[in-house]
Simulated assay, not measured.
Amino acid sequence: MKAALIALRAVVAREALRFIHQRERFVAALVRPLVWLLVFAAGFRAALGLSITPPYQTYITYETYIVPGLLGMILLFNGMQSSLSLVYDREMGSMKVLLTAPLPRWWLLMSKLLGSTAISILQCYAFLAIAALFGIDFAPWGYLAILPALVLAGLMLGALGLALSSFIKQLENFAGVMNFVIFPMFFLSSALYPLWKMAESSRLLHDICAANPFTHAVELIRFALYLDFNPLALLWTLLATLAFGALALWGYDPARGMKRAR
């Protein structure tokens, strides 16, 4: 147990140091959601009407609606960024050193996942602080209530990044994979538009969005922000986390690599 905790602390500290030394990564993580919040939301405000649906008790502005989705955007992009660093570490050889440590592989991957999730959550709260400066704020207890939702959503998206990194062998191939994963997952969700709005356009599009695990992660954050609970979103986010985690463990299983080599 002592060795496992030392490894956890070392991996998390390495992730934190990498984040501190890459200030542009922090800025980039905030620029994307802020552009949506301050630029696109202003244009969509008049075009998109929002009805009173749970967890909202009254009409809200479009800027307020998309904040949970933009928090999900931060978690999603950071999860992919973390998986990109794994591909880079594997090419440089440091990943092999990590995975040969005399500890269970699932613990080493979990340590990596916890480190990247902690950084994502810090970025989320920095975004909420900036949003509050522009008058988009929430109930004080809501900022605390979303913490478990952010942790679970971050673990789910980080596990997805781990799973992807186990199948991507070259750094050059990562950009294409990200385009096929990040953008469909983000736009085919309730991050920017309510599901009932999707149903007005296309029932098939609504069903795809409803089946998207990212939708349930966003809704989990949305309900928690208003001190409400969405059991369906919690269930599907948890199941997706377990599924992506199992896929990542299978992808990094050394036995699979030896079988493929044969």
Rank of each mutant, 00 (worst) to 15 (best):
P194S: 01
A211F: 13
V151K: 04
G251R: 01
Y62K: 04
M156G: 03
Q57F: 14
A13D: 10
W106K: 09
L70Y: 10
T61P: 06
L86K: 04
Q57S: 15
M178T: 07
S166R: 05
R45G: 00
T58S: 15
I6V: 15
F214Q: 03
R25T: 13
G43E: 10
S201I: 15
A129T: 08
I168A: 01
A224I: 09
L98K: 05
H206I: 00
P148E: 08
H206C: 04
L238G: 13
L38G: 06
L247A: 15
L234H: 02
A149M: 08
L157D: 02
Y143P: 05
A153V: 12
L157E: 03
G43M: 13
I119F: 05
L160M: 13
A126T: 03
M178G: 00
M95E: 11
N179E: 00
H206Y: 15
F40I: 15
L152D: 00
T241W: 02
H21G: 08
F167M: 13
W196H: 13
M258Q: 15
I121A: 00
L234S: 02
A149T: 09
V35T: 09
P104E: 03
L48V: 15
L160H: 08
A139G: 12
Y65I: 00
G69T: 12
M110Q: 01
V67H: 08
S202K: 09
N78V: 07
D228F: 09
G142Q: 01
P33V: 09
I130Y: 04
N78T: 11
W107Y: 14
V87F: 01
Y56V: 02
S85D: 07
T58N: 12
T100K: 09
A159G: 04
V12C: 02
E63I: 03
I6M: 12
I6E: 12
F180L: 13
M110K: 01
E24G: 12
S189T: 12
R260H: 08
L155I: 00
A246T: 04
V12F: 02
M95D: 07
G251P: 05
R23H: 11
S85V: 10
R25W: 07
V27T: 15
M258F: 12
T117E: 02
T100V: 11
I168L: 02
M185H: 04
